[in-house]
Amino acid sequence: MAIYTKGGDKGQTSLYDGARVDKDSTRVEAYGMFDELNANVSVAEKLCKSTANQQILRRIEYKMFFLQGEIATADTEKFLKNSVTIGEDDIKFLEQVIDQYTEELPKVSSFILPGTSLAGAQLHVCRTVCRRAERQFVRFLKTQDMRPVLEKYVNRMSDFFYILARSEDFEAQVDELVKKVSAKYDAIKGA
């Protein structure tokens, strides 16, 4: 079976509920940007050194499918009946991660470079793509009603990616410091 349907050959696409819309509609732009974000999150998850961060990001990847699905449905009630949705508990989860990591990591008193580790850099890519997706989502919300919880969730995500990037950068700095100390110790011991 071919993966192409030819249904979009004239500039339209089908939504989750079967409605047809133009491919350049604000709805398609919004869920498309979150799709791009999710692909970047997948890369970040593979680059993370912290297994806890990998697990957290996998959870976010699944939530992104639900976010995209709801945006990609003109008949929201149809989606809500047939799918898992984003809820207040998902916002609380992001806030708990942000609060915990903010407490554990060294305080920042100036601007930081976007990523001193590969995982940190990729998480900053996620942060910036998330901000762009949020701007498009806000444009979309000017013409369509969506559940307010979605806008709150999207707003928390960029802060979430920022703090995870800091976490991965901190882990990389600690690893590098341990390697340097071990190398000096080995040099002294071997002398």
Rank of each mutant, 00 (worst) to 15 (best):
A52G: 06
E151T: 08
D89N: 14
S109V: 13
I112K: 02
V174D: 10
E95N: 13
D99G: 06
S167P: 02
T143M: 07
L141I: 10
I112H: 02
L47S: 05
T143R: 10
T143A: 12
E103A: 12
L141S: 15
D159M: 05
R131G: 02
I56A: 06
R58F: 13
V181N: 08
A119K: 02
E168F: 01
A121N: 07
I56W: 00
N82P: 09
L80Y: 12
T116C: 03
S50D: 12
K49S: 13
C48H: 05
P106W: 02
L57A: 05
I60F: 10
N155D: 12
M64I: 12
R139Q: 10
L113H: 09
I56P: 01
K152D: 10
E134D: 06
D159T: 08
S109L: 11
C130G: 09
I71Q: 00
S83W: 12
F65V: 11
T116Y: 03
K46L: 13
A52E: 15
V174G: 08
T76I: 11
K46F: 10
I60T: 13
Y101K: 13
Q144C: 07
L105E: 09
L150V: 07
I98P: 02
N82Y: 08
Q55I: 06
S42E: 11
Y101N: 11
A74V: 11
R139E: 09
Q96E: 14
V174K: 14
C126E: 05
I86N: 04
V84S: 12
I60L: 11
A172P: 01
C48I: 05
H124N: 12
L141F: 08
K78A: 11
N38C: 07
T51L: 11
K179H: 11
